[in-house]
């Protein structure tokens, strides 16, 4: 099902691709359907009514009006706080950040307030909100617009963390996020926005909602398990395809959600393959890669035939110059090299 659309520089190459939903179109459609279904769903964000930077909210202000698609000022603390309060008051807010990196500005409202309020009130309140965070590098957008900071938020209790990698998942997971009664972060890799993916029939079903906490086995294999998220799923699949020609059978697992995390699918895979490589754009230090490896070490240590490995940003800011940027982001070539090395042991 996956060929390497991510690596094509231009638009669709096959005529049928034109009918496949784009990643950002899928998010748009999910939000549109949910806003039609539930009048309590509304959105806040900078420029979302007139021209949001990545166009994910295009057309929504026209259909739902400026009361439900609210242009926010540059005041992220107030807007995230407003989402928390509105959620407590019975609304179901969606907040767009122009770049997910800016979540840093309003982190208290999220991690100490949204995430903890239910617990601190002994279960009296719920905080059903979705924050959309464009993330990831590869566009030459500089250090403060290129990060993948989900480890920060998966680290603290009380926040669901979603990482969709295809149009189908983007739509079904966004719908699940909106219907969830907890704070949900929805990370959108900017390199995926324009990609188009073939989808199963349920894509058109307005009642099809993803079950959160279920990993996807994107490719079955027996020699090594590669865990990858967002664009790295596609890089891993490309690497797997190349290695298949060399007789290496790679299993690619896309966790899809970090919180909740599907431990069982991961453990079952490593029990089968005995090898584990984790790839992500996140900073390596104390990041999601380490968490996945630790989980396997605890649950399936005896199945490991080789030391697990991780690829990620080697703990430097993503530099502005494209040549330096490419150096610090993992990708297909590094995945291939790591797998070859692990298989040769």
């Amino acid at each position: 099902m996956f060929d390497n659309r991510l690596f094509r520089p231009g638009g669709p190459v096959k005529p049928e691709e034109k009918d496949w939903p784009s990643f950002r179109g899928a998010i748009n459609e999910a939000m549109r359907e949910e806003m039609r279904r539930d009048p309590l769903v509304f959105q806040m964000g900078e420029d979302i009514a007139l021209a949001s930077p990545f166009g994910v909210t295009t057309g929504l202000a026209k259909e739902f009006g400026r009361e439900r698609i609210r242009d926010a000022p540059c005041a992220e603390v107030a807007v995230v706080g407003a989402a928390v309060g509105a959620a407590m008051g019975g609304m179901r807010p969606i907040v767009e950040f122009q770049f997910g990196d800016f979540m840093s500005v309003a982190i208290d409202q999220l991690t100490h307030q949204a995430a903890m309020l239910r617990y601190l009130t002994g279960g009296q309140v719920s905080v059903p909100l979705v924050i959309r965070l464009p993330c990831g590098g590869g566009q030459g957008a500089g250090s403060q617009h290129s990060q993948s900071l989900y480890s920060w938020f998966a680290h603290v209790p009380g926040i669901k963390v979603l990482l969709p990698s295809t149009s189908m998942d983007a739509k079904a997971m966004m719908k699940a996020a909106i219907r969830d009664n907890n704070p949900v972060l929805f990370f959108e890799h900017k390199q995926l926005y324009r990609t188009r993916w073939p989808v199963p029939a349920e894509f058109r079903d307005a009642d099809h909602v993803a079950e959160l906490g279920k990993a996807a086995v994107r490719r079955a294999g027996v020699d090594i398990t590669v865990v990858a998220t967002l664009t790295m799923v596609h890089h891993a699949l490309a690497a797997a395809e190349a290695l298949a020609a060399e007789g290496v059978s790679v299993e690619v697992i896309d966790p899809r959600t970090l919180v909740p995390f599907d431990v069982d699918t991961l453990v079952a895979s490593v029990r089968k393959t005995g090898r584990l490589l984790v790839v992500d754009e996140a900073y390596l230090n104390f990041g999601i890669q380490a968490e996945v490896i630790a989980t396997v070490a605890e649950r399936a240590f005896e199945a490991l035939k080789a030391a697990p490995r991780r690829l990620g940003n080697p703990n430097v800011p993503v530099p502005f110059a494209p040549c330096l940027q490419d150096e610090v982001l993992p990708g297909r070539a590094r995945i291939e090299a790591a797998i070859r090395q692990m298989m040769s042991r």
Binding site: C74, D101, V105, G142, S143, Q144, H145, P317, P319, F320
Partner: peptide, 20 residues
């Protein structure tokens, strides 16, 4: 080439701007 937040500390110019 690290960022385009052009900075020259010898001239007292600190370039910022990624975060408004």
């Amino acid at each position: 080439g690290k960022s385009y937040h052009v900075t020259d500390m010898t001239r007292g110019v600190v370039g910022m701007g990624g975060i408004v």
